[in-house]
Amino acid sequence: MSSNRQLTVSRAMAEAIALEMRTDPSVFVMGEDIGTYGGIFGATAGLLDEFGEERVRDTPISETGFIGAGVGAAMAGMRPIVELMFVDFFGVCMDSIYNLAAKNTYFSGGNCKVPMVIMTATGGGYSDAGQHSQTLHATFAHLPGMKVVAPSNAYDAKGLMAAAIRDDSPVVFMFHKGLQGLAWMASPEEAATAVPEEAYTLPFGEARVVRAGKDVTLVTLSMMVHRAMDAARALEKDGIDAEVIDLRSLVPLDRETILQSVAKTGRLVVVDEDYRSYGLTAEVIASVVEKDPGLLKAPPQRLAVPDVPIPYSRPMEQFVLPNAETIAAATRITLGKAG
């Protein structure tokens, strides 16, 4: 089939799920407003019409219950996809996620498996305040037993979703609201991409070099890939050639691609929409330094939310989120070109 079709991330996710549901009767979806509504962020649009209420189940507002049920169903041979509407809501149901989904394979000595997908919306930038704007990448990536992915575009979203559904381990699929291509929320143009109509998978733990460059390495994922690309385009005008790496998954983390890039550029900027301390930015820098501290020609820079809850008011929220300008400024610092 032609691949000149440009899909939004939300439609790519829904298509990936539909393709798996057509071929694998053990796949089903449940969550709040995922049926008639099609998911608040569009990730299940059209599934109810095709597959019916048994396999596309609207749930009560009972996350501990239905995510726990997802664990049980997965251990009983199904492949559930459960949606946690906003990742911020993990507070009411984390026990089911990190003490059950993430640990049961290990506790059973590998005798049980939990092949479930927890898909959840992340990210801010649209004034939804501190309980509806977090990414919490590191919170999930920190806890062993879950694979964690966070795509930046529709092609990756479709392939990673299919891989997540087929994986025998629990996978947390973190999709950024601002990348979904929803008619009612601004989205970067590049998030919508050409998407093949047939099913395909992308492997976890393989970062993508979005832009090759020789002067500095920008490592990031999800929405911040687009901000980093904007920064790279601005830097190019100043003669700075930045390499931009989209990690695509946090667990497993493709340290090899990062190391190869830093070996080439000698300079590292890490960008994350999560909180700054104890997070992805530190993990990436530590991964480089513990391998070879000599790789870096200058202290690395990191941009992330400065350890405050995401504020509601627009000027304050925009201040705490990394953007193209702050990324470019940090990049210039690593290059000793700060104005």
Binding site: S2, N4, T8, A192
Partner: peptide, 13 residues
């Protein structure tokens, strides 16, 4: 128009 799913000039079925 919120989204175009094909580019100008694309062949569409």
């Amino acid at each position: 128009v919120a989204n175009w799913f094909y580019s100008d000039g694309a062949e569409v079925p």
